[in-house]
Design a protein around this nucleic acid. Structure first.
Length: 104
DNA sequence: GGGGTGACCCAGT
DNA sequence: TACTGGGCCACCC
């Protein structure tokens, strides 16, 4: 799997995240690890930072439920509009957590 | 090729 | 709850 394909896989998975749900970078990396073989939360983070435009990036947060730096306000509004469980300025991953298996 | 950096994660304090 | 240290891997200078 080439880095380019890995990027595509990450974006494709993020697109699959249903409204009102969310995934952590680590969860995305872990889910893709089975297909790509290599996975690092930091890779997913950098990929989202560079190629995140065009996908619901606000549904991807870090393990603590923190929103992406510089877009916290925007992400919170969008998540709120989708009915995603929020706890203050953080996503309640306990309730919003989603895995690819659920969506198929 | 070497070194620093980052939309991260986990465990310990 | 917040901060620190170690590990991680691709990207940029």
């Amino acid at each position: 799997m080439t880095p380019d394909e890995y990027v595509e896989a990450v974006l494709a998975l993020v697109e699959r995240i249903p409204p009102g749900r969310a995934m952590s970078y680590g969860a995305v990396a872990d889910a893709l690890a089975e297909r790509s073989g290599r996975a690092s939360p930091r890779l997913v983070g950098s990929i989202m930072a560079r190629h995140g435009g065009g996908v619901p990036w606000h549904r991807v947060v870090n393990a603590a439920g923190r929103l992406p730096p510089g877009h916290e306000r925007k992400a919170r509004e969008r998540l709120l509009a989708e009915g995603c469980p929020l706890r203050g300025d953080r996503v309640d991953l306990a309730a919003a957590s989603w895995s690819p298996d659920e969506g198929m």
